[in-house]
Amino acid sequence: MNGDVVLDVLVGIFLVAGGLLSLVAGIGLIRFPDVLSRMHSATKPQVLGVLLILLALAMSLRNGADLGTLVLIGGFQLSTAPLAAQMIGRAAYRTGRVHRESLDVDELADRSGTAHDRGE
């Protein structure tokens, strides 16, 4: 009985933490100056936020079969978010959507446009 209460409290904590991280990701989306920095908030806090909520869900369901599905969802999140971010980052850089003023160093610019014929 006591263990259940502890678990429920943990579920609540994880849910709130996940919501908080999602909110932070949203704030980052609004405040950051360009696509590249916005993607930082779309990957790290957002993925962790979703993972925390999934973890809370797993602790609340306490069921083997559902756990498998949740692991699958978490795995999809972990593996696809960086992939999509990388594609977006590449497209953003190639189409020149980079906020130059906030960029201190750009070692990719030194590479003289070879990226275009190497892509696919």
């Binding site: 579920v11 989306l29 916005r38 779309a42 936020g49 869900l57 978010a81 999509a84």
Partner: peptide, 21 residues
């Protein structure tokens, strides 16, 4: 695209939270 992806993640979070509760 980035924002829509985040929006979908938030939807996952909301549905998951509801199911957890």
């Amino acid at each position: 695209v980035v924002a829509a992806e985040v929006l979908i993640s938030i939807m996952i979070g909301a549905l998951g939270a509801e199911a957890a509760v």
